[in-house]
Design a binder for these strands. Sequence first.
DNA 1: TTGAAAGCGCTAACAT
DNA 2: ATGTTAGCGCTTTCAA
Lengths: 376, 376
Amino acid sequence: MPATIRDVARASGVHISTVSRTFSAPHLVNPETRGRVLACAEELGYRPNRAARALITGRTHNIGLIIADIANPFFPPLIKAAESQARQRDYHVFVADTNEDPVAEEELVHALAKQVDGVLLCSPRMSNSLIEQLSREVPLVVINRQVAGLPCVTMDVGQGARAAIEHLTGLGHRRVALLSGPRGSWTSREIRRAAGVAARAAGAELTVLGPNAPTETGGGALAEQVRRSEVTAVLAYNDLMAIGLIEELDAIGLRVPQDVSVVGIDDITLSRLTRPKLTTVATPTAAAGRTAVDMLLQHDAVAARGSRGGGRSGASDDRRTTAQVMLQTELVIRDSTAAVPADGRPRPEAGSVTPGPHRLAGPGRPTATTGGVVAS
Amino acid sequence: MPATIRDVARASGVHISTVSRTFSAPHLVNPETRGRVLACAEELGYRPNRAARALITGRTHNIGLIIADIANPFFPPLIKAAESQARQRDYHVFVADTNEDPVAEEELVHALAKQVDGVLLCSPRMSNSLIEQLSREVPLVVINRQVAGLPCVTMDVGQGARAAIEHLTGLGHRRVALLSGPRGSWTSREIRRAAGVAARAAGAELTVLGPNAPTETGGGALAEQVRRSEVTAVLAYNDLMAIGLIEELDAIGLRVPQDVSVVGIDDITLSRLTRPKLTTVATPTAAAGRTAVDMLLQHDAVAARGSRGGGRSGASDDRRTTAQVMLQTELVIRDSTAAVPADGRPRPEAGSVTPGPHRLAGPGRPTATTGGVVAS
DNA sequence: TTGAAAGCGCTAACAT
DNA sequence: ATGTTAGCGCTTTCAA
């Protein structure tokens, strides 16, 4: 049975309100008294009960992090960064997995709402209007998607896709396939749009394949279509699909990058460890996690100042401060892309030379990414 | 401002205690009244405030999951499974990352203690005695380690290591290196012990290298030592180290499996995607997560029944029910192991043939692993 | 600078 | 079957 504020009060011979102040407003209590109280608290192993505190202050010092699929290697770095950032600010993090299910997503927001000061919605599958509606119940920061009027953190995959297509056309490719991601995914739409524009600008033809599940299996399942489409290069929705595709391409006799070049998106750890190493668009996922937490907590601080006596205001009306941040991406050139084969298409024997790995810009995976900020 | 129990009471014309009962003991309230209350609650979007409820019942319906490193691919499947299992039982999960730091670990248990009904300690780095002490503050289930008197979920890496060594000696290897993991890791000790026994039994020589960080870098850093030690096979503490080692071995001119065979442990997703595909000991991490949650919640249910009026009893004295579960592991043979080279050691040209992938037993990664149960 | 009192949202005896 | 009452651990006016 843990010590309560009353135990400490008794032990140090003061009223409980003095103990309370010692922890929540130390400057309001006599240094001497404070010392005594602190000593007793220490002695008894007392820690304020956050839940009880939340009941009256309206701030739980918890946040919720809702993830589409924890086991997808894209997410763990984001979760880790978000948790770390939150804890540094003395917040604890509920993590929940929706299994890509929009219904679970909504239910989770409701269930968590009372226990948190805000929710980070990562790669949401639900509709914009539902997100807006939920944001009136609890402050929301949306990750990997833009919703008008709500704070969002996205990564500039459009710019990344453009860089990828330019890299490919620069290598002489004129027929490129795009493996599209989940229907309704903001990221997928962005990629498609930008890739289309870039291909047109370079006079290349872009064939859209899919959509398919954003997994190795989903990518692998498109290998046959890739072969039939007679493209010489592929841009995949993400690294997992790219890697699955490469595997399957290999199985049907097409070599990467000799016969087909493949570019992924995300730069998950895995992409450095496959053979060939994957050329990919690095997305700053850790930075996204940190940024989202910062945005939420800043928002939270504002709300705390504004409302007295435990009011929970939701996104309310301070829309003026609602920022939308887009983080920069970076093309990382490794071994899965090469110059277009001389005869233009699949050959049984290996063809051109594999280029040594090098990078387009920057010294490595951006750890402190500067984001292009777009105020809404 | 979310609806409270009072709003519902007013709207449905009953006392708040009736509303309370409608949610926490529905059978005690007249079906008709219940219907009316439920309707009003629905109407108002009322949801019981768990924190307030916890204050009086002593049950938060939250659990804590403390992880050494979320970004380590070993953990996400465990986190996912634990969260899923917990939520199915109407529990929410705090996830926290310690960065492998024992101090952070302890701090986290303290900080979370008041907000959860129990904590899952995954791969703890702190001392046994400290774990025992903390278990008096909040119910604990230990994962990946055995602590006397506490509920633990482990995987039988000893058996796995033995199978790996037998596989290797069966292929003719007589000089085997063991890449040891973090000092003080229970898993690492188990592996070392079992591998030693198995090697001795087969008349093989076991050289222990390390300990080193359980990462690709840590594994890669040992490549030179592996070469100098003149072994023909290596068992690594985990897949990450195995993969890093293979990369680095490749860089210094040793081919896997032609020159050196390498076996990992864990069977992370990655191990199926590298070239060569990794032979490894599959550990049922998802099952471990589920099992740990079940053990904690069962414990919790017992405690709830035992203590009246919101007492938190810690592990207290019902040690008799404290089970220690060990989950079975399974050797998965892929492409990183082969018969020992004819001349016994490193050759510039590729040597023996790569065996086709096949499995020792079972149809795949054990999804529903049966655990050998050891009561303590 | 400290104490007294009220109350956050809810549950759990005890009455009725 | 429902209402009354007390109070979980804490913060926050308001007075002293």
